[in-house]
Structures are given as structure tokens and as C-alpha cells.
């Protein structure tokens, strides 16, 4: 199991051919109180970098992009009633969607934890 990051502050936790996608603790802090999360439809095919979800804070809407190309196989329905989980537990209970990774080599193009940490210094 490995976790990779995008410069747009998404993480993807890779488990075999599946990736669990959410936003980083840094990102949730920047966004502030999240009041609404719009998730992709299960079965949707996303291209790397394509808009996958939207999180709304009190003040503004922010797009969440697909870290890799693949098919959405599950979404976190808990976020419909409890969008604040993205704030309180972004890396676990606040995950957003699971994606069936189409091309494993795309994972290598993402940032590792150290690379991402440098970005948010």
C-alpha cells in the first residue's frame, strides 16, 4: 500500500489496482468548513486531471481532480449527510471515492509524501 499526492492537494491511497481518493489535511484546512460534497457517479470514467468532485465551503466551491485515469467504483456516501468529515478526518472517514486504476504507470508520476510535504511548506 502506498499513498501518492497531486500538486492540487488530492491524495490517492493505492491498494492493488484500486485507489482511494480524498484531499489532504493541508487542503481541508485551506478550504475551511466544508458544507457540501458533490461526488462522481459510480461507473464514471475519469481521465487524470479531470474534475471528479466538488467541495463547497461556506465561502466557495473547489474542484477535486482525478489523480489518475480510471473508473469510479465506489463513493463515500457518508459525506452526503456529514460533509464535515472531510475536515475532521480527511485521510480516513473523509475519503471521497474509489477508482479502478486504468494505468498503473500513472501512479509513478505523482508526488510521494516527501515531495508533497515540500510543496506545502
Amino acid at each position: 500500500m502506498t499513498t501518492k499526492f497531486t500538486p492540487d492537494h488530492e491524495y490517492i491511497r493505492v491498494e492493488g489496482s484500486t485507489g482511494i481518493v480524498g484531499i489532504t489535511p493541508y487542503a481541508q484546512e485551506q478550504l475551511g468548513d466544508i458544507v457540501f460534497v458533490e461526488l462522481p457517479a459510480v461507473g464514471k470514467v475519469l481521465k487524470k486531471g479531470e474534475e471528479a468532485a466538488v467541495v463547497e465551503s461556506v465561502k466557495a466551491a473547489s474542484e477535486i481532480y482525478a489523480p489518475v485515469t480510471g473508473t469510479v467504483i465506489e463513493v463515500n456516501g457518508m459525506l452526503t449527510n456529514e460533509p464535515g468529515l472531510v475536515n475532521t478526518d480527511p485521510e480516513n472517514a473523509g475519503w471521497m471515492f474509489k477508482i479502478e486504476i486504468a494505468d498503473a504507470s500513472e501512479i509513478d508520476t505523482l508526488l510521494d509524501a516527501d515531495g508533497y510535504a515540500e510543496l506545502t511548506l
Partner: peptide, 12 residues
């Protein structure tokens, strides 16, 4: 300031 550390919801 847009907000302080506790955030807009708490401030409001």
C-alpha cells in the same frame, strides 16, 4: 482577514 483559525462557521 477572511477568517481566523477557528473558521467561518464557528465565527458566524
Amino acid at each position: 482577514p477572511l477568517q481566523y483559525p477557528t473558521g467561518i462557521m464557528t465565527e458566524h
